[in-house]
Amino acid sequence: MSNVRTHRAVWLAAIVVVALGFGIALVKVFNENLVFFYTPTQILGGEVPTGEKTYRLGGMVETGSVQREADSLKVRFVVSDLNSKVPVEFNGIVPDLFKEGTGVVADGQWDGTTFVASEVLAKHDEEYMPPGVEQ
């Protein structure tokens, strides 16, 4: 009888160890892939962690701030969080949803005066409908 109990206890312990290992791995992967963005106020206030070379800036594209260079993919615009403004420079193709007055998240680096973006992601509001989808 004690042999059966020992066998069950070993199996139960093995299941607990495997479940615990799986849970720890899941939390680790989640934390590594969790992406935060910093607001213009945080960037200008020096709240960006040191040692991180690239991070995300999030906010609204300031109305009237988008400037495109002729014969180039370079775009300059200002991101605001309604308290502070950060100029952004991006050399590439911006998403179709990118426009003044809408939300944006940009990956890149702060050089002290300008956020130099390597990627720009446009955000849409909850009323957005993809082109061609009509209700």
Results as ranks from 00 to 15, higher is better:
residue 2 S to D: 12
residue 3 N to L: 14
residue 7 H to D: 10
residue 7 H to E: 14
residue 7 H to I: 14
residue 8 R to H: 08
residue 8 R to I: 15
residue 8 R to Y: 13
residue 8 R to M: 06
residue 9 A to D: 09
residue 11 W to M: 06
residue 13 A to F: 10
residue 14 A to H: 08
residue 17 V to R: 10
residue 17 V to L: 15
residue 20 L to W: 13
residue 20 L to V: 11
residue 20 L to H: 05
residue 21 G to C: 12
residue 21 G to D: 14
residue 23 G to C: 04
residue 24 I to N: 01
residue 24 I to M: 15
residue 28 K to F: 13
residue 29 V to G: 06
residue 29 V to I: 07
residue 30 F to I: 09
residue 30 F to M: 08
residue 31 N to K: 08
residue 31 N to G: 00
residue 32 E to F: 06
residue 33 N to A: 10
residue 34 L to Y: 15
residue 35 V to K: 11
residue 38 Y to G: 02
residue 38 Y to S: 10
residue 39 T to S: 06
residue 40 P to Q: 06
residue 40 P to E: 07
residue 41 T to W: 01
residue 41 T to M: 04
residue 41 T to N: 03
residue 43 I to E: 14
residue 43 I to W: 03
residue 44 L to A: 09
residue 45 G to R: 05
residue 46 G to W: 12
residue 48 V to M: 05
residue 49 P to E: 14
residue 50 T to R: 13
residue 50 T to S: 10
residue 50 T to G: 07
residue 50 T to W: 04
residue 51 G to I: 03
residue 51 G to D: 01
residue 52 E to M: 13
residue 53 K to F: 08
residue 53 K to Q: 12
residue 55 Y to Q: 04
residue 58 G to P: 13
residue 59 G to A: 08
residue 59 G to E: 09
residue 61 V to W: 04
residue 62 E to T: 07
residue 64 G to H: 09
residue 67 Q to G: 00
residue 70 A to E: 00
residue 70 A to D: 00
residue 70 A to I: 00
residue 71 D to S: 01
residue 71 D to P: 00
residue 71 D to E: 07
residue 72 S to K: 00
residue 73 L to M: 06
residue 74 K to D: 02
residue 75 V to G: 01
residue 76 R to M: 03
residue 76 R to D: 06
residue 76 R to V: 03
residue 77 F to G: 05
residue 78 V to G: 01
residue 79 V to W: 01
residue 79 V to H: 00
residue 80 S to H: 02
residue 82 L to S: 13
residue 82 L to N: 11
residue 83 N to Y: 02
residue 84 S to Q: 09
residue 84 S to Y: 02
residue 85 K to W: 01
residue 88 V to W: 01
residue 91 N to L: 02
residue 91 N to D: 05
residue 92 G to H: 06
residue 92 G to C: 07
residue 93 I to P: 00
residue 95 P to H: 10
residue 95 P to R: 09
residue 96 D to S: 14
residue 96 D to P: 00
residue 97 L to P: 05
residue 97 L to M: 11
residue 97 L to I: 11
residue 98 F to Q: 08
residue 98 F to K: 08
residue 98 F to C: 13
residue 101 G to E: 15
residue 105 V to A: 12
residue 106 A to Q: 06
residue 108 G to V: 10
residue 108 G to Q: 11
residue 108 G to W: 04
residue 109 Q to I: 15
residue 110 W to Y: 12
residue 111 D to H: 03
residue 114 T to D: 15
residue 116 V to K: 14
residue 116 V to P: 02
residue 117 A to N: 04
residue 119 E to M: 14
residue 120 V to Q: 09
residue 120 V to R: 06
residue 121 L to H: 08
residue 122 A to S: 09
residue 126 E to G: 07
residue 127 E to W: 15
residue 129 M to R: 08
residue 130 P to C: 11
residue 130 P to F: 07
residue 131 P to W: 03
residue 132 G to N: 04
residue 133 V to W: 04
residue 134 E to Q: 02
residue 134 E to C: 01
residue 134 E to L: 02
residue 134 E to W: 03
residue 135 Q to D: 06
residue 135 Q to F: 10
residue 135 Q to S: 08
